[in-house]
Computed example of a mutant assay.
Amino acid sequence: QPLSHTSRRRPPSTPQCTSGIIEPGQTLYVNGKIKVPTYAAPTVYQRYIKVTVSYPTGDTKTYYMPLSYTVYTTLSSPFTSKYLTSGYRYFREPYTFDKIKGHNDWGWRYEAGDWRVFYVDITTPDIWTFEVQAKWSDLYTSLITYTLGPDGEFAGLYYGESVSYHYYIGAGRFLWMNTGIGRTPISRSVKTFPTTTYRYGLYPQSEPVKQRLGVYTVIVRTATFGGSRLPEKFSVEVKPIRRGKLLPNTPQGTTGEVSTYLRIPYPVTSLTPMVGFSPYPYFTYQGMCTDANISPTSYQGNYRANYPFRFRLEWENVCGPDYRDDISVVYAAEIPYLTVYYRYGGTYYQYTDYYPFEDWVITAGPYFTWWIFGGPE
């Protein structure tokens, strides 16, 4: 991915050139143009601008001005998935975006591991949540994924939502884990379901809009590494999940009731909704003014993939229209097909098969009038 550049001196009418004479006190402006080919992977790139300076003394020096930029891919339809590791690797890159190694800095801390970062721009509100799957090949390797929203917060507070299930032992060591296939404990992959309507345990946006559209950051890192001396290839896929009927996207009144339904793209044996209020921001009326309940309280049985789970949410804000409460609904889905396993002493054990899916609604007052002590956030 070449970086083409031209330079010019002021005034703007001066023709662009690739070299020029700079008098004392003058400035030479460099205009850069980044050309990103269609096969570029959506990750971070590093480049430099090479500048050769000839001084009146006859000396010549070369300077390198480093720069970095990010490339993202776009999810504009709930029917199209993307492989984030399917791009072309430019041979000058400092590391391979689709391969990991066993080299660990900070080997005594949680951050120990080999990390990769990818970017996905979600542009349509039809995408409620999306499935992130990371796959590898070595039997003894295990990966962890994290997903951050456009505001830099985790795209959901829970394991299985924005962060794949994992267990940190300490001193930079993790248990081996993966998402099985049914009752088969080894799939060499992990799955999560980040949502665009995350709220519980996190801060809201400054504007009263609940759904976060924009560039999401998908992070992949090693938990364990198989020990090969060669880099190990891995893949990352994001698969959008079409929304059902979500809770309203705009602020609601002090009292109300709405119907909603969601579909989960895997067979489900149990689905339980949990109503709550995020404690953040601090010193607000969150959860102090509103009574809320949802019905039915659960679904129990064998439900096919994409079955429409229907609910009804009711609330009453007794503090009045000047006090905002955000009602979060977290749906805990039991999905046996996606059972998470861990390995200990050569034996595989079931860890969990529950995955959270999240939605929320804004009720009552505007954003800047909900503080107990008054004043904006």
Rank of each mutant, 00 (worst) to 15 (best):
S4C: 06
H5D: 15
T6R: 10
R9G: 09
R10W: 08
P12C: 06
P12Q: 09
T14M: 12
S19V: 11
I21R: 09
P24C: 00
L28Y: 09
Y29L: 15
G32L: 10
G32W: 00
V36P: 02
P37G: 00
Y45D: 03
Y45S: 01
Q46S: 13
R47W: 07
R47V: 12
K50R: 14
T52H: 07
G58W: 04
P66V: 07
V71C: 03
V71G: 04
F79Y: 15
K82M: 12
T85D: 05
S86M: 07
Y88Q: 13
R89Q: 13
R92A: 14
Y95R: 10
G102C: 02
D105L: 14
W106P: 00
D114G: 03
W115H: 08
R116S: 04
R116H: 07
Y119E: 08
E131N: 05
Y140S: 14
S142T: 01
L143E: 05
I144N: 10
T145I: 05
G152P: 08
H166P: 04
Y167Q: 12
Y168A: 06
I169Q: 06
L175M: 13
M177H: 09
G180D: 03
I186Q: 03
R188H: 11
T195W: 01
R199W: 09
L202T: 11
E207M: 12
P208Y: 00
Q211N: 09
V220P: 02
T222P: 01
G226Q: 04
L230D: 12
K233E: 15
S235G: 09
K239H: 11
G244E: 11
K245A: 12
T250W: 10
V258M: 07
Y261T: 05
P267C: 08
T272R: 09
P273V: 10
M274L: 15
V275R: 03
F277H: 04
F277W: 00
Y280N: 11
Y280L: 15
P281L: 08
Y282F: 11
Y285M: 07
Q286R: 10
D291V: 14
F309R: 04
R310P: 11
R312T: 13
V318P: 01
I335G: 07
P336W: 00
V340D: 10
Y341H: 03
Y342N: 07
Y344Q: 13
G346W: 03
Y349G: 01
Y355T: 06
D359S: 00
T363F: 00
T363Y: 00
A364W: 00
G365T: 04
P366L: 04
Y367R: 13
T369A: 02
G374S: 03
P376A: 11
P376Q: 07
E377S: 07
